[in-house]
Structures are given as structure tokens and as C-alpha cells.
């Protein structure tokens, strides 16, 4: 079911001639139930694909926003197990929206790669991005994922030459996540021109859909990327919405932000060439 769910989603988007909005939130941020409410509301608010982060004490590739989200989640009792539980509950409410887990290797090592893949399959999650498992190190995960028909989402970066890109693409499935700037999540964004060039290069190298993330915060920036890439990922700007006001209104704030981003992404190609 799982790699198919991602493929089906991108096929449908292609027919509709628009890019996907991929929304990242951290599991158990600010607590399990609020997070579940957000998760449940995301598809209706316009998230085409969801990345659900699982918290880790040492998120070495994340900027301050996602770091803080992780600390909130850990304080609320968040864990990889809780993340899988949220995934399972989400899947009971939504059959079509691909759900990608994202985080660091150690909680997975601790659970065991086979157990992780089996649990993901049971929960109805579709793939994973493991930030500190480059292709050199993800053989055990690949093996377990193949068995359970799950996707390994690989990252391509501005620091990769052609040789490196070949290595990254070998074993990649689902979609390719282009990290648009060398830096941590939530860092300053790359220029539209640089992203356009990079996406064109990646499209020559692979048939996988290209998602672009890191540093995308506002609807205008998301729309600019949506004209060229197959998907736009927004993370830090979403988790910031949880932190900035009353906890009681966190669900409302997040979903409002997602609606604004979604609207921009959905109309991006239709409005192409028209004056801003």
C-alpha cells in the first residue's frame, strides 16, 4: 500500500497540474492530543503529504524552531512509539494522504530496523526520512523497508556533485527531497533562480518527484517553488505557529497557516506569467 500511496498522490497531482504542499509537524508537539487534532485537520486544510517528525534529544541538522518543537514533544512524553501511535490514529481518519516519518537514527536503532518497519507498516505510515542515515549507512533500513513496501526518502543537497547525486538516488524511492540551502532547517532560503536551476538538474537525473524544502516560510516563496518543483516542504514556519500563542488555539493557528500556504501552492501554476 505504502509506496503506492505516495505514487498515487503524485500521479493525481500531475493530472491536476499542481505541486504538492508537504507539511512537517513534530509528533507530540505540544502534546499528544493537540498534535492528533492538528494531524487530523491537515488534509482538509490543504496538506497533500504529511511529514511527522519523531523527537530526538540531539537534532544536529535542525535549526531553533524544530529543536524547540522536539523539546516540547519530549517534555510531553513524546517518543518513536508515541509517534507510531499517532500515525496509526491518523490513518484511521484518512486513507489517502501519504504519511512520512522524519527524524534521527538512534530511536530507530533502539527499536530495531525490522521492528520499526513492521510497526510503520501496521500504523499505515508510508516512508521515512532519517536525517543522519546517508546512503552509506542505510542498508539495514533499506532491507527492512523493502520487505514492508515502504519508501526511503533521500536528501539531495547543494553540496552534492554528479557522482554524489548518483549515490543518493541509488535506492531512493517515493520522492527526492532537495535541501535547498546548506544549513539547518529553518535557515534562510535559497533564491528562486538557484532553486529553479537545481530542480532542473535533479529532474534530468531522476524520474522521482522533486520536493524542495529548508527555509520556505511564506505563501509567496512556496508558490515560487511550486511553479517548478513537484512539491514544497514547509516545517519550521508551521511548528512556530504552535509556539507563538495560547496553546488552546494552536490547532487553529497551524491549520490557518496551512490553508494560506496551500492556496498559494494550488494557484501557483495557474497564475504563472500574470503580474504579482
Amino acid at each position: 500500500m505504502s509506496t503506492q500511496r505516495i505514487c498515487a498522490k503524485f500521479a493525481a497531482l500531475k493530472r491536476a497540474n499542481r505541486a504538492a504542499l508537504i507539511v512537517y509537524i513534530m509528533a507530540s508537539d505540544p502534546d499528544h492530543e493537540t498534535c492528533f487534532e492538528i494531524l487530523k485537520g491537515l488534509p482538509e486544510a490543504g496538506a497533500d503529504i504529511i511529514e511527522l517528525g519523531f523527537p530526538f534529544t540531539d537534532p544536529m541538522a535542525d535549526g531553533p524552531s524544530v529543536q524547540k518543537a522536539g523539546l516540547r514533544a519530549l517534555r510531553a512524553g513524546g517518543s518513536l512509539r508515541q509517534t507510531l501511535d499517532l500515525a496509526r490514529r491518523f490513518r484511521e481518519t484518512d486513507a489517502d494522504t501519504p504519511l512520512i516519518l522524519m527524524g534521527y537514527a538512534n530511536p530507530i536503532e533502539s527499536m530495531g530496523y525490522d521492528a520499526f518497519a513492521a510497526n510503520m507498516g501496521n500504523a499505515g505510515a508510508d516512508g521515512a526520512i532519517v536525517v543522519d542515515l546517508p546512503s552509506e549507512e542505510d542498508a539495514p533500513l533499506r532491507e527492512a523497508f523493502t520487505k514492508h513496501d515502504l519508501s526511503i526518502i533521500r536528501l539531495a543537497t547543494p553540496t552534492a556533485n554528479d557522482q554524489r547525486l548518483t549515490k543518493v538516488l541509488d535506492g531512493a524511492s517515493g520522492f527526492l527531497y532537495y535541501v535547498s540551502v546548506a544549513g539547518v532547517t529553518g535557515a534562510s532560503a535559497a533564491t528562486t533562480g538557484a532553486i529553479e536551476t537545481a530542480v532542473a538538474r535533479l529532474k534530468r537525473a531522476t524520474d522521482l518527484p522533486i520536493a524542495v524544502g529548508f527555509g520556505v516560510r511564506e505563501p509567496v516563496a512556496a508558490a515560487a517553488i511550486a511553479r517548478h518543483a513537484n512539491a514544497v516542504v514547509v516545517g519550521s514556519a508551521i511548528v512556530d505557529e504552535i509556539a507563538i500563542g495560547e496553546p488552546a488555539k494552536a490547532v487553529e493557528r497551524v491549520l490557518r497557516k496551512v490553508r494560506l500556504l496551500s492556496e498559494a501552492v494550488r494557484s501557483a501554476r495557474a497564475l504563472e506569467g500574470t503580474p504579482a
Binding site: 536528501l155 553540496t159 552534492a160 554524489r164 544549513g183
Partner: peptide
């Protein structure tokens, strides 16, 4: 091993 973010691999 080399358990680092892809950006650092090169």
C-alpha cells in the same frame, strides 16, 4: 561509520 546529514557527506 559516517552517520551525518547528507549535506555533510561530500
Amino acid at each position: 561509520g559516517r552517520f551525518v546529514a547528507e549535506t555533510l557527506m561530500p
